[in-house]
């Protein structure tokens, strides 16, 4: 079974966001694989270790530097990569169209991706890809079992945990709690350099979203800070909760 994993290169989640010329500055920012996608890569590798997946193809859309994200996934254990060269201003619609076109050419049995990217927080692209390919999808999974042409997924649904079954080929998006991604080994990093990565141009379509401006939220200012005995602090904190916040005590 061929598995495609969609990854996106994002800022490290510890990164402080700053603006330059009205845009988010990437100066000095450490770039990583989106943590939710990294879990999808690990999930695919585990499927291969179980003998369910036979080939793992990792794909990303965007600028040339996305190649680093592909190499990291290859070092973890993916077999080959595809870089879909696309303007970084592409919106979720345009990215889904570009990725789906490249995925279609591969005829996979399973498409994995993180359910959301830690940067734009859109949580749209995997589901859009499923719609374009005409595949079923399941979002936010924490476990998967593949047998008899079906994927049985445990998902973190609203108000509980659901087990959902879909026929494959399907698009499945991961929650970070699915697994603990491995660190690439030295051997893996060496091997990754020799693994094939194809570069294709994105299908050109117009965005459906226009960014008007980007801003930073008003900085929160520090208020009272008490350094005193615990009992004094606790009494004053209780007083603040009751009289300033006006909490209701059950």
């Amino acid at each position: 079974m061929k598995v495609i994993v969609c990854v996106k290169q994002t800022f490290d989640t510890e990164a402080k966001i700053e603006l330059k010329d009205g845009k988010i500055s990437d100066a000095g920012i450490n770039l990583i694989i989106n943590p939710y996608d990294e879990v999808a890569v690990e999930g695919a590798i585990q499927l291969k270790e179980k003998g369910i997946a036979t080939e793992i193809v990792v794909i990303t859309a965007g600028a040339d530097k996305g190649m680093d994200a592909i190499r990291t996934a290859l070092a973890m254990g993916a077999d080959r990569g595809i870089l879909v060269k696309q303007d970084t201003g592409a919106d979720e619609y345009a990215r889904a169209v570009a990725l789906a076109a490249a995925i279609k050419a591969e005829s996979p049995q399973l498409v994995l991706a993180g359910h959301v990217a830690a940067d734009d927080g859109s949580s749209q692209v995997p589901t859009r890809i499923a719609e374009i390919l005409g595949f079923p999808h399941v979002n936010v999974i924490t476990a998967i079992d593949i047998a008899g042409g079906k994927a049985t997924c445990t998902t973190e649904a609203d108000g509980g945990t659901a087990v959902i079954e879909v026929a494959i080929p399907a698009v499945i998006s991961s929650q970070v709690s699915w697994n603990e991604p491995r660190y690439p080994s030295m051997k893996g990093i060496m091997q990754a350099k020799k693994k094939p990565v194809a570069t294709v141009d994105a299908v050109a379509v117009d965005n459906k979203i226009k960014i008007i401006d980007v801003s930073l939220p008003a900085a929160k200012t520090a208020g009272i800070k008490l350094e005193d005995d615990a009992d004094v602090c606790a009494v004053k904190l209780a007083d603040w909760m009751k009289n300033t916040v006006k909490v209701e005590v059950k």
Binding site: F11, K16, D120, G121, K210, I211, I212, D213, V214, L216
Partner: peptide, 10 residues
């Protein structure tokens, strides 16, 4: 966006 570290008007 960025989990609230920034805001985008679209």
């Amino acid at each position: 966006i960025y989990a609230g570290k920034a805001l985008a008007k679209v």
